[in-house]
């Protein structure tokens, strides 16, 4: 089942067109990787999906359907709640870990202490931080290590119970061990969430994703199961990119 359908999407910042006539469908509860060289429009694609593009001054034409309905027909707050995003640079709020995780639930009207504690505990377990930091919930989130911060940010995006999780190069600033942790976590999360991950790291895409989309200069070159894209690419440009020619 397709949770997102993107039809003839064009995105531009002012006069600069970043995404050109892109159409693709995202399947529910799968991990879709988006690969391509720097500046090809991968991140722009992600920020368009939950309309964060508007905050950055971009605009788009074409159609994006979330569960069969145009994303523009949803309240923007609801849409962003349903389609969470985590950025490349981890951005914990400079408060305690607890406050980071209760920030959004409180906004959505959850006031009950026990309920909030439950949410925090569940989230920490989901992102694999529970054993590491459950005794230090009052610690400043900015004092966590890089990998922990990124997991906390993913957790924070999960506190609003989204259906889709967009990740913009979540591991680019992390070492191998932390990357492995996050990959493991994403595989686990994909049972309940649809995940779209932009990555530079081809082996990462290969390891965790079910589908892979290759974008070059704002155009979707190839989109297929990860196995096909990596083992049997149809387009020469994909083959060259995978061999490492575009870098």
């Amino acid at each position: 089942m397709n949770i997102l359908e993107i039809n003839n999407l064009n995105v531009s910042y002012g006069s600069k067109q970043v995404i050109k006539n892109l159409s693709m469908n995202i399947e529910k509860n799968k991990i879709t990787a988006v690969i391509g060289p720097s500046g090809c429009g991968k991140s722009t694609l992600l920020t368009t999906l939950n309309l964060m593009i508007a905050e950055n001054g971009g605009s788009f034409t074409g159609e994006i359907l979330f569960k069969g309905k145009d994303i523009l027909s949803y309240e923007i707050d609801y849409l962003r709640r349903m389609i969470g995003i985590v950025f490349q640079k981890s951005t914990p709020f400079p408060f305690s870990i607890y406050k980071n995780l209760t920030y959004a639930p409180k906004y959505y009207g959850i006031k009950d202490k026990n309920r909030l504690n439950e949410i925090v505990e569940n989230i920490l377990k989901r992102v694999g931080l529970y054993d590491e930091i459950n005794k230090n919930l009052n610690m400043l989130a900015t004092k966590l290590s890089g990998g922990q911060q990124q997991r906390l940010c993913i957790g924070r995006a999960l506190t609003v119970e989204p259906e889709i999780l967009l990740l913009d190069e979540p591991c680019s600033a992390l070492d191998r061990k932390n990357t492995a942790n996050i990959e493991e976590m994403l595989l686990e999360l994909s049972k309940d969430y649809t995940i779209v991950v932009v990555t530079h790291n081809l082996s990462q895409a290969k390891r965790i994703s079910d589908y892979t989309a290759f974008i070059l200069d704002g155009e979707l070159i190839e989109y297929d199961t990860t196995e096909n894209v990596f083992n049997n690419p149809k387009d020469d440009r994909t083959r060259e990119y995978i061999k490492g020619i575009y870098g």
Binding site: N50, M52, E55, I76, D77, Y78, L79, R80, R81, G84, I85, F87, K89, T91, F93, P94, Y103, A104, K106, Y107, C153, R156, A157, T159, V160
Partner: peptide, 20 residues
């Protein structure tokens, strides 16, 4: 980026101002 993360949670501008 921190402010954007708040908006990305679907949280309103006023809430972001007062709580973040």
């Amino acid at each position: 980026a921190v402010i954007t993360s708040s908006y990305a949670l679907g949280v309103s501008k006023v809430y972001t101002l007062f709580k973040l």
